[in-house]
Nucleic acid binder design. Sequence first.
RNA 1: GCCCGAGUGGCGGAACUGGUAUACGCGCACGACUUAAAAUCGUGUCUCGCAAGGGAUGUGGGUUCGAUUCCCACCUCGGGCACCA
Length: 944
Amino acid sequence: MKEYEHLKLEKKWQNEWEKKRIYHAQNKSKKPKYYSLIEFPYPSGDGLHVGHPRPYIGMDVISRKRRLEGYNVLYPIGWDAFGLPTENFAIKTGKDPRIVTKKNSENFKRQIKSLGISFDWSREINTTDPKYYKWTQWIFLQFLKKGLAYKAKIAINWCPKDKIGLANEEVVGGNCERCGTPVEKREKEQWMLAITKYAERLDKDLDDVDYLPQIKLAQRNWIGKSEGAEIDFPVAHPRVKRFVILHGRSSRPGDNSYPWLKKELESRGYKVEVPEMPNSGEPNDLEQADFVKKHCQLDEGTVVVGHSMGGIVALRLLEQGAKVHGVVLVATPSTGLFLDKKPRPTVTQAAQRGFKYGEIKQNADYFRLLYDSGDTVVPASDGELFAKKLNSYCQFSTGEKPHFQGKEEPAILDLLLPHIKVFTTRPDTIFGATFLAIAPELAKKLTGKNFGIKVDTERENREKLGADTGLKAKNPATGQEIPVWVVNYVSADYGTGAIMGVPADDERDNEFAKKFNLPIVENYKKAGFEDFGKRITKFKLRDWVFSRQRYWGEPIPVILCEKCGIVPVPERDLPVELPKVKNYQPTDSGESPLANISKWVNTKCPKCKGTAKRETDTMPNWAGSSWYYLRYTDPKNAKAFADKKALKYWTPVDWYNGGNEHTTLHLLYSRFWHKFLYDLKLVPTPEPYKKRTSHGMILGEGGVKMSKSLGNVINPDEIVKTYGADTLRVYEMFMGPFNQSVAWSTESIIGARRFIEKVWRIGEKVASPNASAQDFLQSNVSHSQKHLGSNSSLPKLLNKTIKKVSEDIETMSFNTAISSLMILATEMEKAPSISKDDYKKFLQILSPFAPHIAEEVWASLAEKKSINLSVWPEWDEALVKDDEIKIAVQINGKVRAEIMIEIQDNEEKIKKQALGDPAVLRHVAGQEVRKIIYVKNRLINIVL
RNA sequence: GCCCGAGUGGCGGAACUGGUAUACGCGCACGACUUAAAAUCGUGUCUCGCAAGGGAUGUGGGUUCGAUUCCCACCUCGGGCACCA
């Protein structure tokens, strides 16, 4: 008998398959296509550990089955090679990440190849290859073109010791992952991608894909869609009591301008004065100011509203030292507040005196706001909003109430009478709202004061803190005045930064109200959803921070020109190649190391040809992996990221399996990129992946995570050498449910090896001439296969196994598929003889799991063509069914006997048979049978 | 705190849609073969009990003729999120 030499045999077939290009996918084929995908690995310096291959083997089983089923299968692999470990290694050793990456990926490749995974290596890609990242950059430019890539100042994690911006995953418990220094927040301009623009579709289109339910849920939770309402709570200012409205030159004395404004203000309890100034305008503004001083009360509770000429009067009052709370000027360039469309010196002078000053442009109209510096009602920065809302100053000046669309309040009221907008998913509880809780940032904005309250993100021990702002809001439902508190449990960056406190209904509000003795209204009236607010949809999803101040990433292809601003690198100049540097250390200022290469940084502006600088930020790791599956369809294309025909043929991916840790970010990001490309009509489908599953991690022995520091990392090289790739494959598929994490056990591998050797021995037996002469000798099998059906012949068992394996592979129940293959193998070995045809079928259904031995034995049975080119066996439904089966007889739910029945027996006959069984008779023993329940082909339950 | 997943022999795990719990594998014990060992094969292996029989699927309840499976409450472990309004 020939010895099973796994090393020799596996190498032989791997070479043979490669030579014959057996796993190469065809971009044109009469066969139906099948695209199976795994998450491409990050080639780390540590090499492969036994956890890596689990998903590759799983999808390999699927892919191999599909090939035998007649599909043109694309099962590609590549390297997601930009990443922190390589960068950190470069910083430490000064080694070029390019060289390190090449070495690491070659090692990974050798290791993966030794496992006999049926990857199409001709389509291998690498995200760090300029030919690849050219297209990553190109896609970025499309985002830029569509306004979906933009720069914004946001807080990043900053390690003050390493002087480096940290990704969220590098912050461990608030400290720098590497040096343990507490991480600070630092404001920095970052590139952002507007993924939130796609939030609605990313949520909704989940309906149309076949992802595991948990994965869909995780995506939905991350997107965080919530339907609610925005409700305005008018706020009375604690100090403003009175408005003095000074009208412009065109208003005749006595016509009492702004009647609507006066009315509105008065309805909120303010005093309003509209002095009928002598209307002689400039140069009589001083005279008018005197008039106002004489007739109106100007004190710290007064806001002066000056329109046009009235504005100049208001400025005079300021000049003369009027101690008013604030001044609001409303004017256009055509009025006297301006000279040659520039603000009058008085305006700028006032600003220089410390008044807040904001200029707002909207069409040709200008609005200028001035407030005293200490206590703004509405900050000047909100002027933009103001401008948007107040769509015509003219209407304001005519004394008519301006016409605003929808429910919008007249913007002048927005300005004079602030309100707090809250977001709530329960607008129906508004009658129970007894206070407003606002974020510290908003409190600062509204009152100018710092209350010393901070929203802390610490996970434990979060005590509710708060302080009364002194502001009073009016509950629009009850009309009641309610206090406004600044709290540490409302964050500024979600919703409106303000909530209504309904302590009777909301747990957090309740806790807060109790602590600070705020009123709790228990039995209140419920409101209709839209009675007081505007229906609105919010998402938790934030825009994607796309900048990294790192070396080892795709340079963001943008040039910063002093004259022209942000200028995209022309597409013909792509890729912007990552230059070589001497030092990989980030700069002291936190810029990427690229900032130090002046030769690279300094460039010409593509627009004006003047001097300009390159963007030195690079892209995050997620960039290259957001579209890699598209590149596989046409990996060498130099004219486009992939040919349209190839994309049309292969997309979407039919089945994508990956790690649970990637079911939120990576999956969401790549869906976002795909949808964007879909909108540009560059990909044919709105979704990239038809089906998504995930695999569990392989843990070290004892159930702990495999890690270098614990020294429990298992290198597959050792296993392949000692036991063979087929054994490793079978073991990894057998060790437990594919989607759950399992602990590695080197001790248990021997079981898989014994199984493989058994397959070998049977193969030897079948291949030997005297055995093959007795085709189809049936043998009775017993014991170990009783769970597949009683008293089956070998052909029966074979057909049952074909069915079971075929079905189990589809649900990734690889462990049970192998279990049934083991049972069949055991029975085949026991059988006096097995037909060659039957054994070949066994080899075919085994081949996805153990391709090498299957191919070797297949060839030994005089097959000329590779088993890979054969056709997946079908099972015979007639042979799968049993004629005679064993069912259980229960008495009061307890099994007391087993009886054999014919499959065609009717219920009556079976019941009679059960009641006649000696064990049953003993248990029934004269008692009355109340009920008999018969479950077809399963059991009979006799109820006494 | 919330969401998701899991809890079954000494161990990894199996069990269809509520229907014979512990398949398959590891380990262990005994036996066969062998001068011997390895390999292989066979038998046994949840637990109490001589047996009849009883008890076990994290814990406690419930629904049901029947629950690992469904419901309620709780405990433990793993993963994710975080005062999300």
